[in-house]
Simulated assay, not measured.
Amino acid sequence: MEHGTHAHDTHAQHTHEDHAHEGHASGPTTWGTAAKATLHCLTGCAIGEILGMVIGTALAWHNVPTMILAIILAFIFGYSLTLYAVTKAGLPLRAAIGVALAADTVSIAVMELVDNGVILLVPGAMDAHLMDALFWWALALAFAIAFLATTPVNKWMIGRGKGHAVVHQYHH
């Protein structure tokens, strides 16, 4: 009898954030859940980065402005994917922006830091052109390493009701 009362009292003390995470998974966050969240992040980052590199190359920009554009577009496309999903689920745009910022900022930042760091470390990658195999090989390697580095971050955040856990309450 005491257990039932305690469970009800504990449930009454849960915050809105607890319920946001609660609807997604029971128990500890799985690596699969974290990988799906990271893949979502990687998709937006990849679209933005590749578009930024194509634009920078087409405009004959130097590496730094091209990289800055690619990072900005990675954030824009990363946020846009979440905005699309949560507004489609019925969330008003203003609230959806807050959800996207809360869900994606850390994930995209880690993804961008790691993948751009890898590209900087691969000899010749910064000077490779879109038609060079080195460009695409280095980019694929950078995305793979960034995925592996960001997945544990997302697992940790989701497990605490942060990051992509904020979005899960809007998935049906």
Rank of each mutant, 00 (worst) to 15 (best):
R94A: 11
I68Y: 08
L69K: 00
P152M: 02
D9F: 04
L141W: 06
D115W: 12
M67I: 04
T43D: 05
M131R: 10
G48M: 01
V99K: 14
A70G: 07
N154R: 15
T82Q: 14
I71V: 13
P28Y: 12
L69T: 03
H40I: 04
E22Q: 11
I47M: 14
H171S: 15
D18P: 06
A146V: 08
Y170Q: 04
M67Q: 02
P65E: 08
I108R: 12
T15C: 00
E112V: 14
K162R: 08
I55W: 06
A109N: 13
I76A: 14
L73P: 12
P152I: 05
L69M: 04
V167I: 03
L130D: 05
G32T: 05
G161S: 15
G23H: 05
V110H: 02
L91A: 09
V118E: 05
T43F: 08
L81F: 09
I119S: 09
I97Y: 00
A20C: 06
G159A: 10
H21W: 06
T57N: 12
I72K: 07
L91H: 03
T82V: 12
A144H: 00
V167S: 15
S80G: 11
F135Y: 09
T82M: 15
H62C: 09
G117R: 03
Y79W: 10
H129S: 10
G90V: 00
L148Q: 02
I72Y: 02
G52P: 14
G23P: 00
H16Q: 04
G124Q: 04
D115P: 02
G44P: 07
H19M: 03
W137A: 14
H3P: 02
L139M: 12
L141D: 10
L83I: 04
H19Y: 07
T151Q: 09
V167A: 15
D115H: 13
M53R: 12
M131T: 15
L148I: 05
I76L: 15
L121F: 01
T15R: 01
T5H: 03
H62N: 07
A165D: 08
A85H: 05
G159I: 08
Y79G: 02
A128I: 00
H40N: 02
A25C: 01
V166L: 04
P152S: 06
D115F: 11
H24V: 02
A100C: 06
V114N: 14
T151I: 02
A34F: 00
N116C: 05
H6P: 10
L130K: 05
S80R: 09
H172P: 02
A60I: 08
P28D: 15
I158V: 15
P28E: 13
V99P: 12
W156E: 04
A102G: 11
G48L: 03
H6K: 13
A74G: 14
